[in-house]
Design a protein around this nucleic acid. Structure first.
Length: 342
DNA sequence: TCTGGGGTCCTAGGACCC
DNA sequence: TCTGGGGTCCTAGGACCC
């Protein structure tokens, strides 16, 4: 039997969960994000396919989405509901013989051994729909990169096979940001080097890209373009490296004392998260986003690794003291780096 | 247009040491 | 007066992903 990696990706996940419990939403443009008030600060978490027809996309400011489609239904993010739906989907996937690696709320890799991966994928897709009412798309590859890219090509409600034999034919003509790990910035830097397609990137000299983009990044990009990647699927999540809390304010904070108070609050929340990890923190970083949108960070090592609220608060306040609080602040964040296990 | 929150990994530059 | 060549650690920023 042959080994394949499946990437299972729920279709318009959050919007689909909302439509499940409110059937009257079916067929309507639905936008889920923030508090559900499109006049407030926040971004789109998921837009239904109907809303996407108006150009609404994940990550877009809610205010922009509202302008594009004032008649859309705007809903607040209901994280517990999505976690529950996610758990039920995972339950179904865990019954498939193979190794399961969840990836966020609405995706998972599944390493399987089969002679007919497409038939298996169709079966998984049907079972998820039957048991949860949710549609997914499934990409099939020899490694996680191929599977991940394939699920995007499968959408919606599809199955797509993308192994070595078909990689060049399917991917060669696409822009580099079709690859998992290449975003708009890297795509622009590649374009400046004359690299405009995945085929261009696959044919590029790794040493040249290393010099242009960095010793690790350059050669890695060439491997991506060739469809090469890890086939490892990890049943256990990697130990967390950090825990963080951050908050964007509806109105910018002009008062330094209010910023201090928020830093203390976030440090206390981060301390609770750290305590759950059963490992102490080693460094604390405070992040401030100044109006209009300039982000700065300051990091302070803890004198001795600690998980307590007092220690994290003290370190966070020390980091905050290294800022000049002379401009309004729109976001405050506190991040604790954890000591690696062992 | 006005840009969330929670993460991971990479890079560049400076400090420091031998 | 004109200052090598690593290696490692630390910090800040950035890119990307879900």
């Amino acid at each position: 039997v042959a080994r394949f990696v499946l990437h299972v990706d729920l279709d318009e996940f959050i919007a689909a969960v909302e439509a499940l419990r409110r059937p009257e939403l079916r067929g309507r443009p639905v936008v889920v994000g923030g508090s559900g008030d499109p006049t407030k600060r926040g971004v789109v978490a998921t837009a239904s396919y109907e809303a996407r027809r108006f150009g609404i996309r994940s990550g877009m400011p809610l205010r922009t989405a509202f302008r594009r489609c004032p008649d859309a239904v705007f809903l607040p993010v209901d994280a517990p509901a999505y976690h529950e739906a996610s758990r039920r989907v995972r339950e179904v996937l865990a019954e498939v013989p193979g190794t399961l690696e969840p990836l966020g709320w609405d995706e998972a890799f599944l390493a399987v051994e089969t002679e007919d991966p497409e038939a298996l994928a169709r079966e998984v897709q049907a079972r998820v729909l039957e048991r949860t009412g949710l549609w997914c798309s499934i990409g099939i590859g020899r490694n996680t990169l191929q599977a991940k890219v394939a699920s995007g090509l499968a959408k919606p409600r599809g199955v797509f096979l993308l192994t070595d034999e078909r990689w060049t034919e399917v991917m060669g003509g696409l822009p580099p940001d079709a690859l998992w790990g290449v975003g708009p910035k890297t795509a622009r830097r590649l374009a400046a080097l004359g690299i405009r397609t995945v085929a261009d990137l696959a044919a590029a000299d790794p040493a040249v890209l290393a010099a242009e983009l960095g010793p690790a990044l350059g050669p890695w990009l060439v491997r991506l373009a060739r469809g090469e990647g890890s086939a490892e699927v990890h049943p256990e999540p990697a130990p967390a490296r950090s825990r963080s809390r951050e908050r964007t304010f509806q109105e910018d904070l002009a008062d330094p004392d209010a910023v201090r108070a928020e830093v203390r609050r976030l440090a206390a929340e981060a301390a609770r998260d750290v305590a759950e990890e059963a490992r102490p923190a080693t460094r604390v970083t405070v992040k401030l986003r100044f109006a209009p949108f300039r982000t700065r960070t300051r990091t302070v090592p803890l004198p001795v690794p600690a998980a307590g609220r007092e220690a994290l608060e003290a370190a966070a306040l020390a980091a905050l003291d290294r800022f000049e609080l002379d401009r309004p602040v729109r976001l405050v964040g506190v991040r604790a780096e954890l000591r690696p296990p062992g």
